[in-house]
């Protein structure tokens, strides 16, 4: 069984308690308060599309590491704000929203920073995992592309 477990550092995310752990073996190296998905539902007015803002659960790995990331706003972000979805891709770009760093783990989900640090510890996001500045810096420094992420 031990051969199946990650030998390097791995990340465990507890979405119920909004906690993230850096672990190596059985040892917790760091524990961070985070924000996970709200579980809310958004339906497109007059359309057929529907989004459920859950943080996905299961086994993932870090697919990308970004510094000073831009947020490419998806359709739901405009629909939620009651705005028209822009035709020009340039109108989707938003800087300074995701914090200093972002770690992608697939399907548009990221572990990233937040402007709303007072909401850390609550389920408020659209599925991404928001982390405080100091923890995010440490996460970016320590995690590599390929680092395992277990989310429950």
């Amino acid at each position: 069984m031990a051969n199946l477990s990650p030998r390097d550092l791995y990340i465990v995310i507890d979405t119920a308690n909004n906690l993230l752990y850096f672990k190596k073996g059985e040892h917790i190296l760091r524990k961070c308060v985070i924000s996970c998905g709200s579980g809310n539902i958004l339906s497109e007015p007059g359309g057929e599309r529907r989004w459920i803002f859950d943080t996905p659960k299961g086994e993932f790995f870090v697919k990308s590491k970004l510094k000073d990331p831009y947020w490419i706003k998806p359709d739901w972000a405009f629909i939620e704000e009651g705005k028209d979805v822009p035709k020009d891709a340039k109108d989707r770009v938003e800087a300074d929203y995701l914090g200093e760093y972002a770690l992608g783990f697939g399907d548009g989900y990221f572990i990233h920073g937040t402007l709303y640090t007072r909401l850390l510890g609550r389920n408020v996001t659209h599925g991404c995992v928001r982390v405080g500045d100091e923890d995010l810096r440490e996460l970016y420094r320590t995690a590599s592309v390929g680092t395992k992420i277990f989310i429950f």
């Binding site: 709200s38 579980g39 809310n40 339906s43 939620e80 609550r122 408020v124």
Partner: peptide, 19 residues
Amino acid sequence: RERIEPGCSDENGAYELKA
């Protein structure tokens, strides 16, 4: 699950938290 009303959200948390 709560349903989001388009145009009524306020990301800065000034609204009652629905989650």
